[in-house]
């Protein structure tokens, strides 16, 4: 891996910024150069939110991801907006419980995960983002339990230590999910 660019996109409140943060910390722990850049409106929930993450062996230049290698789309407007921006040969992860349509392109690898539905069914409501993260790291072949765990511990404050297990569980669900 020289440089991999990730774009997480959806509504505010879905935890996209958090997903990006976990990925960035995992990269940092694995001694990559990393950048994490959020973009969101003034609302705490609702509105659009997205997050650019770059992992690289080189120093990171522009931190804004315009043509991602990996797109994680958690609502239809995001898929509509960014589908064509993904680099050929890239990956698109779709929360298929929130997005009814299929990806139109045939030059990218697409994974459909009904993450929001799985999160509700498994009592990890709100953690659809981490189910997608589990799936993402699996398809990238970089699900390293040790660094994933360390990254989660960095991103979840001690005050919310009980959330650690929920996040791990959600990532496991994503990891084991097959269409």
């Amino acid at each position: 891996m020289a440089t991999k660019e990730f774009l997480f996109a959806g509504f505010g409140g879905q935890g996209l910024l958090f997903s990006g943060k976990v990925l960035a910390y995992k990269g940092l722990i694995e001694e990559k150069n990393v950048s994490w850049l959020p973009s969101y409106g003034p609302e705490m929930r609702g509105g659009t939110a997205n997050c650019s993450v770059i992992l690289s062996d080189e120093p990171v230049g522009a931190p804004i991801v315009l043509n991602p290698d990996v797109l994680v789309a958690m609502n239809l407007p995001s898929l509509d907006k960014y589908e064509n921006a993904v680099r050929p040969g890239g990956i698109i992860l779709v929360d298929s419980s929130l997005i009814g349509r299929k990806v139109q392109r045939d030059d990218v690898d697409v994974y459909y995960v009904p993450a929001t539905k799985l999160a509700d069914e498994n009592g990890t409501g709100q953690l659809a983002n981490m189910i997608l993260m589990g799936k993402l790291l699996t398809v990238l072949d970089s699900y390293n339990e040790e660094t994933v765990s360390a990254a989660l511990e960095k991103c979840i404050s001690a005050r919310h230590a009980d959330m650690l297990e929920f996040n791990r569980k959600a990532m496991e669900i994503g990891r084991n999910y097959t269409e």
Binding site: S35, W36, L37, P63
Partner: peptide, 9 residues
């Protein structure tokens, strides 16, 4: 705003 909001090591 970008440099302020972005995270890097």
């Amino acid at each position: 705003g970008t440099i302020g909001q972005m995270m890097e090591p």
